[in-house]
Design a protein around this nucleic acid. Structure first.
Ligand SMILES: [Mn+2]
Ligand SMILES: [Mn+2]
Ligand SMILES: [Zn+2]
Ligand SMILES: [Zn+2]
Lengths: 149, 149
DNA sequence: CTCTCATTTGAGACTCATTCTCAATGAGAA
DNA sequence: TTCTCATTGAGAATGAGTCTCAAATGAGAG
């Protein structure tokens, strides 16, 4: 977590009359220091392992603040759990997910972005955000026979 | 629900050694007769209102069979509930959703389909399915000030 | 048509991610 | 330092979906 990122967080907290607590900083640090798509429970457990005991409730509450203020990105791959990833120094992107091993690859297509905008315009919607996920089998998983699960 | 659709369902049940029960037929009928994107609970309640009392468990179980055998389409707009729609005489499509009033518009873009395939190819994934949802404000909801929620 | 039996059903218990409650604690303005 | 809310943690509550198990029932065999 760079100072810049911490500053952004401080600004958000200030603007919203929220307090800068050690718990909030630790949770944000944990997400910033990982390049995975983390579940709240994973964040909770990573912190615990580092002897940073923060309650699940606080982890959930902090991730909510971060998401609401666009300091993290959130995704749901259909298993009923939110996954978070830091949103810093990287751009908006979509995901290609292996349904077998869970490997996630990120992609960007300006062409798709444009067509999305056209579609929204056509139906008179003001486009605010989108979810675009491709599901398939990665190179590895395509090789292994399906019986070997 | 046309006879053709019922026949398809019978065939699926037969192939899987599942029985054709009145409950299963009623649940399928309910979905086929609606053009909405229905939650399991809505299906359960619609049936109840028609004095067709079928347990929630059976509704969930039937929707699962229908989904697994591609007789219905399933979507999750991020609120933790599956929504189902019949899949008959209509084609694969994606959704444009108003975050204010919930109105759902359907769209298809062959261009996007093609690019998706290119992306999957590029990363050496075998593309199996995708989720593509655009969220925004519909014409109506764009007019009304945000305070009036 | 009846028998038989594996499948299905319904009621309610259970799961599990997330949210809520509330008493105790703590951040930070003055 | 004091004062005052916001925040925290522990555990209860929620809610969509799944599971359990005894009773009911489709449907093939006879
Ligand atoms: Mn990502
Ligand atoms: Mn649809
Ligand atoms: Zn894989
Ligand atoms: Zn609307």
């Amino acid at each position: 977590m760079t100072d810049l990122e911490l500053e952004k967080f401080k600004r958000v907290l200030n603007d919203e009359n929220l307090k800068l607590t050690p718990q909030r900083v630790e949770v944000f640090r944990e997400v910033c220091n990982s390049d995975e798509h983390l579940e709240a429970e994973e964040i909770y457990l990573s912190l615990k392992q580092r002897k940073v005991n923060i309650s699940r409730a606080t982890v959930y509450r902090t991730m909510d603040i971060l998401y609401q203020h666009d300091l993290v990105q959130r995704m749901d791959i259909g298993d009923g759990k939110w996954r978070y990833e830091h949103w810093l120094d990287c751009h908006q992107h979509d995901h290609l997910i292996c349904i077998r091993c869970g490997t996630i690859v990120e992609f960007v297509s300006h062409q798709i972005e444009e067509i999305q905008q056209d579609v929204a315009d056509k139906f008179n919607y003001k486009l605010l955000r989108h979810v675009h996920q491709l599901f398939g089998l990665c190179k590895q998983c395509r090789k292994t026979p399906m019986s070997v699960i």
